[in-house]
Design a protein around this nucleic acid. Structure first.
Lengths: 142, 142
DNA sequence: ATACTTATGCAACTTTGTTGCATAAAAATT
DNA sequence: AATTTTTATGCAACAAAGTTGCATAAGTAT
């Protein structure tokens, strides 16, 4: 982890009015170092470091609330999380990209360049958020 | 539950080469009587009937395998299930409709008439399935 | 340096999901 | 229609995932 990233993590936390703690910094480092979305269990295993389960739950919830990370829907029981891009904020939070889950390697990635297409709902429905999850085989596994 | 539906449940099970048991019939009745998608916990509560947790898990898994129901991804821990339409089969199973989750009443419904738009993936990716989940406010709650 | 606020970790608990095995029920066979 | 074979169910015991309250530790403000 470069000093540049360390600094930007600190800034990110400060911008969200969160106090800068060890756990928060380390969890954000994990996000930045991994290319895919992380599920909850990843945080206890990784980095030779042990995090308390409770702390991880609370930290992720805080990050969600502040719009620092977003959750990606799955059809298994686990929820996956990924860092939000700059166009997310606490009160206006939506992902403008498609999520891709590889059936081979199991990783979920955000396809930043793939736009979420427009959806036309039936009359009477109000749309707040659209989640698109594509499953298939990724570049690396093909 | 009408006799007509009872008969069609029997047929459905027979067509999938599943033996016709009490539990299976009752769980399918629950699906047909509810307009929204069901999550696992619904099955133990509903209908004044108690189902063993293990049996419910195994029954839903069987239905999934046979393409009788499909699962709908969520960002909470629960998985939701809904009946498949006729164009699903055991080996070629995909939903051609959009799922809608209402933030007010919490129910998830299949918007049968809303097509899943075409998604253009970056080069090197193979697409098998697309899940679209829209959240917002439904007709009834608005 | 001290007071104040917030985050963390532990313990105990609840809920959710899994596995093996004996029994019960359904389907096939005679 | 009775018996055999196959399959589904329920129980028990367990494993994993998620939650809550509270004392302590660490961060922030004065």
């Amino acid at each position: 982890m470069s000093n540049k990233n360390k600094a930007s993590i600190t800034e990110l936390l400060r911008a969200s009015k969160l106090s800068i703690t060890d756990t928060r910094v380390k969890i954000l480092e994990l996000f930045m170092n991994s290319n895919g979305a992380l599920e909850h269990s990843s945080f206890e295993k990784l980095a030779g470091q042990t995090f308390d389960r409770v702390t991880v739950y609370r930290t992720l919830q805080t990050f969600l609330d502040k719009g620092i990370i977003h959750s990606i829907p799955t059809t298994d029981t686990s929820i996956r999380y990924a860092l939000c891009k700059s166009d997310c904020s606490e009160h206006d939070h939506h992902d403008h990209h498609v999520h891709f889950k590889c059936e081979e390697c199991g990783t979920t990635t955000c396809l930043e360049d793939t736009d979420v297409p427009e959806i036309h709902l039936p009359k009477g429905y109000a749309m707040h958020n659209v989640d698109v999850v594509v499953s298939g085989v990724c570049k690396q596994c093909k």
